[in-house]
Design a protein around this nucleic acid. Structure first.
Lengths: 95, 95
DNA sequence: TAAATAATTAAACAAATATTTAAATATAAA
DNA sequence: TTTATATTTAAATATTTGTTTAATTATTTA
């Protein structure tokens, strides 16, 4: 659980996630988007992977990254009680 | 924006938020829930406040903390594109 | 007004994090 | 089979973060 929150705490990692909503991308293409070294991006990708926010598959010499639903489901599950808290109308009288 | 993600990155702060779904609580009552000094909790409350995830009002010598919708709305807004990404059925054919 | 209570702010420090450069691994092309 | 390309792993380091103890502020009660 912790790892998902850690993963989305970083602005670069959030941008990577946003970039991947455009579709699968290989590591180099992702790295090009940022003014940062490849090893740094590689580290961010690793963390996002650990959090199950992304996944990858090997295509020849390339690693192609995609969004992974399960990490996002964790966030959604955590968020749910607060949605209920704010959206459920509070009873005005004690029953 | 960043501050909200920073705020929810810490497990103690997430527990504080969860605790506040039970209703408004003063700082001392919150601190009692944790095996941690009051100054530490006070610092966590300050961060949650900065992130607009909580708010407080003074009641005599007590500070009463409550959940604040606006921080949660920021999270929801960030999450929205991913909801769309995963839940929108992808067209199987190119139109 | 003096003492007690509720809570924060400040200073110090250990642990965690993001970044870089350099080295390593794996695949493809010449 | 050598060279180039894509990417990761490792080591080093500066910055950020969470915690504690000590000091401070504000309010209540005796």
């Amino acid at each position: 659980m912790d790892i998902v929150f850690k993963a989305i705490n970083d602005p670069t990692r959030r941008e990577i996630l946003r970039f991947l909503t455009h579709g699968p991308q290989n590591a180099g293409t992702i790295a090009q988007q940022f003014n940062m070294t490849k090893p740094s991006i590689s580290h961010h990708l690793d963390l996002l992977k650990q959090a199950q926010l992304i996944d990858f598959s090997k295509k020849g010499q390339f690693l192609v990254y995609t969004l992974n639903k399960s990490g996002f489901e964790s966030i959604h599950a955590w968020f749910q009680p607060f949605t209920l808290f704010f959206e459920l109308p509070k009873p005005k009288i004690r029953l």
